[in-house]
Nucleic acid binder design. Sequence first.
DNA 1: TTAAAAAGAGGATTATAAACCGTGGCTTTA
DNA 2: TAAAGCCACGGTTTATAATCCTCTTTTTAA
Lengths: 68, 68
Amino acid sequence: MKDLAKKLGANIRAKRKEKGLAQDKFAELADLDRSYVGRIERGETNITVDKLYILTQVLGCHARDLLP
Amino acid sequence: MKDLAKKLGANIRAKRKEKGLAQDKFAELADLDRSYVGRIERGETNITVDKLYILTQVLGCHARDLLP
DNA sequence: TTAAAAAGAGGATTATAAACCGTGGCTTTA
DNA sequence: TAAAGCCACGGTTTATAATCCTCTTTTTAA
C-alpha cells in the first residue's frame, strides 16, 4: 500500500534529480503545488493516474519508467 | 485528460474479458464496488495508482499492460 | 559561519475518488 | 415467461487526493 507510494515517489525523485531539476521548478513545470510534489516524493500520498502522466511528461519519460 | 481514463478503462475491460470475468465477479475479487468498476471501465473516473495495482493483480498483468 | 536555496512539515480548505445504496434494460437459458 | 447473468447508470455519503498557505529545517555555496 504505502510501500507502492514510497517506491513511486523515490523513482520520481530520482528522475527529477537526473534532470537536474529542483523540486519547486519541477512543481512549477507540472503546474502543481511544491508542497504537494514533496509529499508525492516522500510517498505520503497516493496519486491519481492523470497526475502520474503529468509528471512523466515533465520528466520526459514513460509511466512504466516510474512504476515499481 | 478524460481520454486517458477512457483508454485505460477500455484496456482494463479488454483484459477482464480476456480472463472471462464478469464485471461483478471482477469487482468482488478486487474488493471494489461493482458500480465503481463499471465507472472505471467506462472511463468516468480517474483512478489512483494503488487501485490500478489492485486491478493488475486480479488481472494477472502489469500496470504497463494497461496504461496507454 | 552565515546567507540563500532547497526540501520538509503541517493546518485548513476544496475537489473528487471511492464506497454504498439502489433501479432498469438487455440477453441468454431453463 | 420467468429467472439469472451481465452491465449502464443515478443519488448520496465518506475518504482522501489536491490546493493553498505559512513556517521550520536541512543543504549548499560564498
